[in-house]
């Protein structure tokens, strides 16, 4: 297993929001965690990225390495775990190119950086047309492309995606997921958290359902799509 999460607990100001969740992801998989707003989806991703501390007793391993010993910047630069945060969080005062370059800050593999950059432009040709534009002036769809492209540049063993569909028109949403599938085909594992459960389950091979900080269901996406509880709670009947 590439990513192993055991008994992950996270608290905000002593209030527990994740009550010990367990899941694993194999290399090359697409896995989704679906759930309502506030269920703990983003918190899970932030804990993996080490942006927020995990409580004692939590176990997180990536390719056999203990994630808990890593600072957030080294999670990216040494382990190749990239994170597309909720709301994209682009640096609006930097150009498109600078956003992409900044993501390679700690990388030394110049040749590979060049190739990765070409790959990003192959997947998102629009970005190449906007290179010198301040990223704050991009359209919503373009901003999401840049957020994903930037994450790809920072490292792409696994990509954690936090609601990439948010704020996108249906057509853009679909093409975004096509792009993500392409990135996955090139060897990037994907962990997606989404409120849009139908979209997420159609995209992923396996899924987990999170409720109030606990994983309550898991299985192949097809099974979850057929599950009456999931249908009722997340797929609108």
């Amino acid at each position: 297993m590439q990513l192993v999460i055991r008994n992950l607990q996270v608290s905000y100001d002593k209030i527990k929001v994740l009550h010990g969740i367990d899941f694993t992801i194999a290399k090359g998989e697409i896995v989704t965690i679906i759930g309502a707003n506030g269920a703990g989806k983003s918190t899970t991703l932030k804990a993996i990225s080490r942006l927020i501390p995990a409580d004692k007793g939590s176990v997180m391993e990536f390719e056999g390495k203990d994630l808990l010993t890593y600072q957030p910047d080294r999670v990216v630069s040494e382990l190749g775990i990239s994170h597309v945060p909720e709301g994209r969080r682009l640096f609006g005062n930097l150009t498109v190119l600078e956003n992409l370059q900044l993501a390679t800050f700690a990388r030394k593999d110049r040749e590979q950086i060049k190739k990765d950059m070409e790959q990003v432009f192959a997947i998102f040709p629009r970005l190449k047309e906007r290179l010198t534009q301040a990223s704050g002036t991009l359209s919503g769809g373009e901003q999401q492309m840049l957020a994903v492209g930037r994450a790809y540049m920072s490292g792409h063993k696994i990509m954690l995606l936090d609601e990439p569909s948010m704020g996108l028109a249906p057509l853009l949403m679909l093409s975004m997921f096509d792009a993500l599938r392409e990135i996955n085909k090139e060897g990037t594992t994907i962990l997606l958290v989404e409120q849009n459960a139908r979209l997420a389950l159609k995209f992923a091979q396996r899924g987990y359902v999170i409720e109030n900080g606990r994983l309550v269901l898991e299985g192949p996406s097809a099974d979850l799509l057929d599950n009456p509880d999931v249908k009722k709670a997340y797929l609108g009947g």
């Binding site: 942006l51 994170h83 969080r89 640096f91 900044l102 993501a103 800050f105 700690a106 920072s154």
Partner: peptide, 19 residues
């Protein structure tokens, strides 16, 4: 560049691998 990024959104900067 990292400083400029930091001035815009300091919490997203570590995600770029910047220490």
């Amino acid at each position: 560049m990292a400083m400029r990024a930091m001035s815009y959104d300091f919490q997203a900067v570590p995600l770029m691998g910047v220490s």
